[in-house]
Structures are given as structure tokens and as C-alpha cells.
């Protein structure tokens, strides 16, 4: 039996020190909705659990230069209640809201969803489409990174030893911008995404798309930034032809697997469908 201990630091510095002292045998507990399952199933056997929910900067939402800074351990339910985020980044909010049940929403966090590094994580494609940044704290201080750089493989991240994600930053948006996230699951709730698609875009006054980002989840070992999909949209009014190109680009980017949750064929096809549908919603939101 391993001797597990529990710590609940009050600051990021303290948490980083604990991480370093445990020398790789510590796990961060944010929402715990993945961690406790992994503990129960014996997938991990840490010697220390560091609860990061009592660190005030990690559970706050702040407006900053017209953008939003969101603590990495804020629950999905709390984020969903934030009117400013709902207005500015509805796609991100809806993606986070799709993580698990109401009960899971009471606990699950964006930080956990990202750092658990599942290819199927719902929040991540939306955050990547939004080109969100994150603050990372470690023994050598703090640095900033793009969310799209974090996940490197299933369960693998680019975080260095004893580093942790503190918060996310969603920058101010130009006028006529919109985002959306859709996922496909067999049921209506309670499943892991079989495919996820996040789109963020900006239109000019004529309704022509001037900027776009598109990311897919659950169709490869990591979330995919689909640049050809963005290209398909930029310069178009998201007409039928552009949507067809988007659909093809999304499908072409997929490198999925057959597993208990979906097939290669189904995932690929649905990736194109969701890309189109998410783009249409994002457009509608951009048009206000």
C-alpha cells in the first residue's frame, strides 16, 4: 500500500514547491473528475495529491484589457454563469458545459480538461479555436503558452517537470466575431466525444470572413488545428462552396482510430459535418 497524502496549498508558489518536493509522484487535484476515476481504477498511484481549488487566483474570472482571465480550477458550472464570457466566447462556454453531467459540471475545470490531455476533451478544441493562452507556473517562475501547444499525445503534455497551468486568457475580440463548438456522441449526454469541432471566426461588414480558426477533437492522438479549414472560410461568405471545402478539409485532416466509441469511417465523415454545422453557428453569432 502506498502512503498517500493530501495537501491543499493556498498559493501557486506553494503548490509548485510541493510538486517539486514530491519528485514526480504528485498529482494535481482540480475538479478531480478524471483524477479520482484514475485513482479508483488503479491507473495511477501518486504519493501526494495537491488540491488546487483553494488558490484564489486559480478560481477567479477577471476582465483584463477587454479579454478574460480564467482560473484553471474554476468549475464548469461557475464559468457557465459568467455573463461576460457567455457573450464573448459562447463556443468556449458551451464546450466546457458539455463536459459530463450537471454533477461533473459542479467540479470539472478547464485546467483539468486540458492537462488530462485526452484527445476527446471537449473544452480543448474550442479553446484552440479561440487561440486561448495559458499561464504556466514552475520552479523557474511563470511563462505564457498557446493552448494549442500543450497537448502532445494521449495523456501527454508539453509541461516541464513540476509545472502547472494557473489560468487561461481569452483576448479581446474584434467586432463581428463568433465561435461555436459541437461534438458528436451516441447518446445526448454522458458520453465522451466521438468527434468534436470548434470554430472561431470574424466577418467584415460585408459578411466576408476575415479570420478563422478551426480545431477538431477525438479524430487523432491530439486535438488538430485544421489550417485548410480556416483557409476554406477566409475570404468567403461561408456560402455552400466554402462549406463544402471546409467539410473536405476537416475530413482530410482526420487520423482517427476504430475503438469502442466510434469507427474511422464514421468519425471522419462526422468531422466534416460538425465542422460545417459549427461554422454556421459561429457565423450566425458573428452576425449578431
Amino acid at each position: 500500500m502506498n502512503a498517500l497524502t493530501y495537501a491543499s496549498p493556498g498559493s501557486v508558489d506553494e503548490a509548485v514547491k510541493l510538486l517539486a518536493a514530491a519528485d514526480g509522484n504528485a498529482r494535481l487535484l482540480a475538479g478531480g473528475t478524471d483524477l479520482l476515476v484514475q485513482l479508483r481504477l488503479g491507473m495511477i498511484e501518486p504519493s501526494l495529491i495537491i488540491d488546487v481549488k483553494n488558490i484564489s487566483e486559480m478560481t477567479a474570472i477577471k476582465e483584463e484589457n477587454g479579454g478574460f482571465r480564467i482560473g484553471a480550477s474554476i468549475s464548469g458550472a461557475a464559468l457557465g454563469e459568467h455573463a461576460g464570457m457567455q457573450r464573448a466566447w459562447p463556443g468556449v462556454v458551451e464546450a466546457v458545459a458539455l463536459i459530463g453531467s450537471t454533477q461533473i459540471q459542479g467540479r470539472a475545470t478547464m485546467g483539468g480538461n486540458l492537462c488530462n490531455a485526452s484527445p476527446a476533451a471537449d473544452a480543448v478544441p474550442a479553446m484552440i479555436a479561440a487561440d486561448a493562452l495559458c499561464t504556466i507556473a514552475g520552479p523557474d517562475g511563470r511563462r505564457e503558452a498557446r493552448v494549442e501547444e500543450i497537448v502532445t499525445g494521449p495523456g501527454e503534455t508539453s509541461l516541464e517537470a513540476f509545472e502547472m497551468v494557473v489560468d487561461f486568457f481569452f483576448p479581446a475580440r474584434p467586432a463581428r466575431s463568433g465561435d461555436a463548438y459541437l461534438r458528436f456522441i451516441p447518446r445526448t449526454e454522458m458520453d465522451i466525444a466521438v468527434v468534436g469541432a470548434g470554430v472561431s471566426l470574424t466577418l467584415d461588414e460585408a459578411g466576408v470572413c476575415t479570420a478563422a480558426r478551426m480545431a477538431l477533437g477525438a479524430v487523432a492522438a491530439t486535438q488538430l488545428v485544421v489550417e485548410d479549414a480556416a483557409k476554406a472560410l477566409i475570404g468567403s461568405t461561408l456560402d455552400g462552396a466554402a462549406m463544402e471545402k471546409l467539410d473536405s478539409a476537416a475530413r482530410a485532416a482526420c487520423r482517427p482510430i476504430d475503438d469502442k466509441r466510434g469507427t474511422i469511417e464514421h468519425r471522419t465523415k462526422v468531422a466534416g459535418v460538425l465542422a460545417r454545422r459549427a461554422a454556421a453557428i459561429a457565423k450566425q453569432r458573428a452576425e449578431g
Partner: peptide
């Protein structure tokens, strides 16, 4: 488990 053995949920 109930995650991937998919019995109907209320919204289904």
C-alpha cells in the same frame, strides 16, 4: 462501466 455501456439517460 456506465460511461461506455450506454443505457438511456433522461435526455435520450
Amino acid at each position: 462501466g456506465f460511461l461506455d455501456y450506454r443505457i438511456p439517460v433522461a435526455s435520450d
